[in-house]
Amino acid sequence: MDGAYVNVPNIGMAEWETAYWGRNFPRLRKIKAKYDPHNVFQYEQSVPPATH
């Protein structure tokens, strides 16, 4: 994970989901869907809520 810092978005980074969150990304999407289903708290590379 060289150069992947969660609080510093890098729009040009390929596969940022894996670089930042690894295998946890699908689980984090489910958590996001539970607590922020309308994606109120978001930025360019935030975890999007899972869709059902």
Rank of each mutant, 00 (worst) to 15 (best):
M1R: 15
M1W: 13
M1Y: 13
D2G: 07
G3Q: 13
G3H: 09
A4V: 08
Y5V: 14
V6S: 05
V6I: 13
V6E: 09
N7T: 12
V8L: 10
P9H: 04
N10G: 01
N10C: 02
I11E: 13
I11P: 05
I11S: 08
I11R: 04
G12V: 05
G12I: 02
M13E: 15
A14L: 05
A14N: 04
A14D: 11
E15R: 11
E15C: 12
W16N: 11
E17S: 09
T18D: 03
T18R: 00
W21C: 13
W21L: 10
W21Y: 15
W21G: 03
G22N: 10
G22F: 09
R23Y: 12
R23V: 15
R23H: 11
N24F: 10
N24R: 06
N24D: 10
F25Q: 00
P26A: 01
R27W: 14
R27A: 12
R27T: 14
R27G: 10
R29V: 03
R29F: 04
R29W: 03
K30S: 07
K30W: 12
I31S: 07
I31R: 04
I31H: 11
I31V: 14
K32Y: 03
K32P: 05
A33R: 12
Y35S: 08
D36N: 11
D36T: 09
P37H: 01
P37E: 03
H38P: 07
N39V: 14
V40K: 04
V40D: 08
V40A: 08
V40C: 01
Q42W: 05
Y43P: 00
E44K: 10
Q45N: 06
Q45A: 02
S46C: 12
V47M: 00
V47G: 00
P49K: 02
P49E: 01
A50H: 00
T51N: 06
H52N: 14
